[in-house]
């Protein structure tokens, strides 16, 4: 249950960037209250409850310029690199049924050696949906 602290980290980094307009495209900084959606990418190995993260976001943003904005979270497959044969790409997933969850296997799909995780444990803000002011160019 660390969703609250993750939501807070997202909130802080977003606010830090809103305070430094040069770090964001001008359309975003014109009025921060117009951010409607924050698009996140979540590596599939990260244990994360979307429901809890969204609820934490609602609570944290209350009374701030980000109130009313929503998180949109996309799960992205795990990518791996094989130190043995040099393979780099999607991880293999457990094929068997009955696990009720996509379980990545840290084994090289090509040669079977143990692989390193390139992507799959991260949580990143990738895009913002902003509402343009009526009549704005």
């Amino acid at each position: 249950m660390h969703e609250y602290s993750l939501a807070f980290s997202i909130f802080e980094s977003l606010r830090a960037r809103l305070a430094q307009p040069e770090m964001l495209p001008s359309r975003v900084t014109r009025r921060a209250s117009r951010i409607k959606k924050i698009h996140l990418r979540q590596g599939e190995l990260l244990v994360l409850s979307h429901e809890a993260l969204k609820e934490a976001w609602r609570i944290i943003t209350e009374g701030t310029e980000l109130e009313g904005s929503e998180l949109e979270i996309e799960r992205v497959p795990v990518r791996v690199r094989c130190p043995g044969c040099g393979y780099e790409g999607d991880a293999k997933y457990l094929a068997e049924e009955g696990w009720h969850m996509r379980v990545p296997i840290l084994s090289c799909p090509r040669c079977g050696a143990r692989v390193k995780i390139v992507e799959g444990k991260d949580l990143a803000v990738v895009a913002l949906t902003v509402e343009e002011e009526v009549g704005a160019s």
Binding site: L14, P25, R27, D122, V125, V130, E132
Partner: peptide
């Protein structure tokens, strides 16, 4: 509505 690409990197990178 516009979707604007931003890259904040990994929130968990600090960890």
């Amino acid at each position: 509505m516009h979707e604007i690409q931003v890259g904040f990197g990994d929130i968990l990178k600090k960890q």
